[in-house]
C-alpha cells in the first residue's frame, strides 16, 4: 500500500480530464455542476479508497453517476443516461473546437460514453467497460462506431481552425 497523496494533488492531476468527460456528457453549466459534485464526493470518500485502485477510473465512475443524476434531474425520468437536453446556449468555456464538443454530445449514449471515457478520459477500453458495466469488446466497438460517426458529422475533416489558417 503506497501512501495517499494529498487530495489537492488528485485535483491537479485529474481535474482537467474529469472536466473533459463531464463536458462530453453534459451541456456546459451542467458539466460544471457534475465536476463539482464528483470532486466533492471523491474528497469525502478519499480516505477509504483502495490504494491500488486506478484513481482516474474511480473519478470517471463517480462523474458518470453524477452526469446521470444531472440528466435525471432534467428529465425527471429514471432513465439511465437519458437523451441529452438541448444545449443551454451558453458559450462553450475555454472553447477551441465547439463543433467537436457538439458532435461528441450528439452521439448515441453508448458511443458517447465510450468515446468520452477512452479519448477524453484516457481510460483503457477495459476500464471503460468496468465503468459502464459492459464488455471491453462492446466498448471498443462502440468507440469505433462513435469515431466513424464523428468523422461523418465533421465531414471527415478534423483539422483545427488554427491549422487551416496556418
Amino acid at each position: 500500500m503506497g501512501p495517499m497523496k494529498p487530495f489537492e494533488q488528485v485535483v491537479a492531476d485529474h481535474g482537467a480530464t474529469v472536466l473533459r468527460v463531464c463536458r462530453a456528457l453534459l451541456p456546459p453549466a451542467d458539466a460544471d455542476d457534475a465536476w463539482s459534485e464528483t470532486f466533492l464526493s471523491a474528497l469525502a470518500a478519499y480516505p477509504r479508497l483502495d490504494a491500488t485502485a486506478s484513481v482516474e477510473g474511480w473519478l470517471v465512475t463517480i462523474a458518470r453517476r453524477k452526469a446521470i443524476d444531472q440528466l435525471r434531474a432534467r428529465s425527471r425520468q429514471p432513465v439511465p443516461v437519458a437523451e441529452l437536453p438541448e444545449d443551454d446556449g451558453r458559450p462553450e468555456p475555454g472553447e477551441a473546437r465547439p463543433d467537436l464538443w457538439a458532435a461528441v454530445r450528439a452521439l448515441p449514449t453508448r458511443q458517447r460514453e465510450a468515446v468520452a471515457y477512452h479519448y477524453l478520459g484516457g481510460l483503457p477500453h477495459t476500464e471503460t467497460a468496468a465503468v459502464t458495466g459492459t464488455t471491453a469488446a462492446a466498448t471498443r466497438r462502440a468507440a469505433a462506431d462513435g469515431i466513424r460517426n464523428l468523422r461523418r458529422t465533421l465531414g471527415g475533416d478534423a483539422t483545427t481552425r488554427q491549422e487551416r489558417e496556418a
Partner: peptide
C-alpha cells in the same frame, strides 16, 4: 490532417475554468 482521435485527445479545457471550479470545491468541502 490530425485524426478525429488525436483531436479528441487534445480537446483543451481552460485553466481559468478549473481555477473557478476549484474555488467552488473549496467552499463546498
Amino acid at each position: 490532417t490530425p485524426t478525429i482521435e488525436s483531436s479528441l485527445t487534445h480537446l483543451a479545457v481552460d485553466t481559468a475554468d478549473l481555477a473557478r471550479l476549484h474555488r467552488r470545491l473549496e467552499d463546498a468541502a
